[in-house]
Structure formats: structure tokens, C-alpha cells
């Protein structure tokens, strides 16, 4: 007799536990406000990454097309993956002195692990992380970028 009571009560307990579970999912289907899906890319306008977000390394230029990179290669050394290559050249200054400036700031986005070490190592705060996250391209070669804009110069007073 005890066995039968146990048998029947186990059935009811089981059914009750199942209903408890269904109550949770039932709650969510009847509360469409809880839906968490974001409609990307429709929400591109409103979708803002946090300021700290590490999207890719950029070399900041001001409106006169000047940057702050002195070509010291500290970032190149700090990078664990060799994602940065600084190619520098010597130019002649008006006063006749030779000066080292960057020719190309090559950045391999495909190798970057977004560790932020290059940014920390830069003595002149020339580079920073942008919040851009749409990096998909059709060809791998497009991921190798030259960060200094054509014709850009070193900013006055930065050394």
C-alpha cells in the first residue's frame, strides 16, 4: 500500500515540477517587453559602443592633417604580435638638419589582439583605440592599413 501511495505521489510531484518550469517560459512568452534581441543593422544610428571599447588602433589627426607620432617605435616594441610596423625616413629640415619622421605607420588589423599595450606605451599619445567594430572586408589585404594620412605632418611642438 505504501508503495502505491509513493508511486502516485511521485507522479504528482513530477507533474508539479514540470508545471513550475512551464510557468517560467510561460511568463516570458506572455511578456514581450522582456525580449532582448537588438535589430542590427537597423539600429546602427543608436548603437554606440562604450568609450573604452577597443575596436582598432587609429592614429589621431587634427584638422590641419597633423599627427603626434614621432616615429619612436615604442609601440612596435610593445606589441606582442608584430601588428605594428613603423617605417621611418629622414627628411631635411629648413634649417638644414636631418630629422627622422614616419613614412608609413603600418597596422595589421588581422594580427591585432586588441590588448591595448601599444596605446599605453606611446609617449606622445599619438594613437588611440577607436570604437569602430565593423571590420569585415572581402580581402585579407584590406586589413593591412597605413594609419598616417597622405601628406600629414608631425604636430608642432611634439617631440
Amino acid at each position: 500500500m505504501k508503495a502505491i501511495i509513493k508511486y502516485i505521489s511521485s507522479i504528482f510531484k513530477a507533474l508539479k515540477s514540470l508545471f513550475r518550469g512551464m510557468a517560467v517560459t510561460g511568463h516570458y512568452i506572455s511578456h514581450p517587453k522582456e525580449i532582448i534581441t537588438q535589430q542590427y543593422p537597423e539600429n546602427r544610428e543608436t548603437l554606440k559602443m562604450f568609450d573604452m571599447f577597443r575596436g582598432e588602433v587609429v592614429l589621431t589627426h587634427n584638422e590641419r592633417n597633423e599627427h603626434r607620432c614621432t616615429g619612436c617605435s615604442a609601440c612596435e616594441v610593445a606589441c606582442p604580435n608584430g601588428s605594428i610596423e613603423i617605417i621611418s625616413k629622414r627628411i631635411e629640415m629648413p634649417d638644414g638638419k636631418k630629422k627622422k619622421v614616419i613614412d608609413k605607420f603600418v597596422y595589421h588589423l588581422s594580427m591585432c589582439t586588441f590588448c591595448n599595450l601599444c596605446i599605453l606605451s606611446c609617449p606622445t599619445d599619438a594613437i588611440k583605440m577607436s570604437q569602430d567594430f565593423e571590420h569585415a572586408v572581402f580581402d585579407r589585404s584590406q586589413l593591412t592599413k597605413v594609419l598616417n594620412k597622405t601628406g600629414s605632418k608631425l604636430m608642432e611642438g611634439v617631440r
Partner: peptide, 9 residues
């Protein structure tokens, strides 16, 4: 329906 149960669209 599966999506609505799972908080999706």
C-alpha cells in the same frame, strides 16, 4: 514561438 519563449524575435 520558440524565439518568443527564448526572449528573441
Amino acid at each position: 514561438i520558440c524565439a518568443f519563449f527564448q526572449l528573441r524575435l
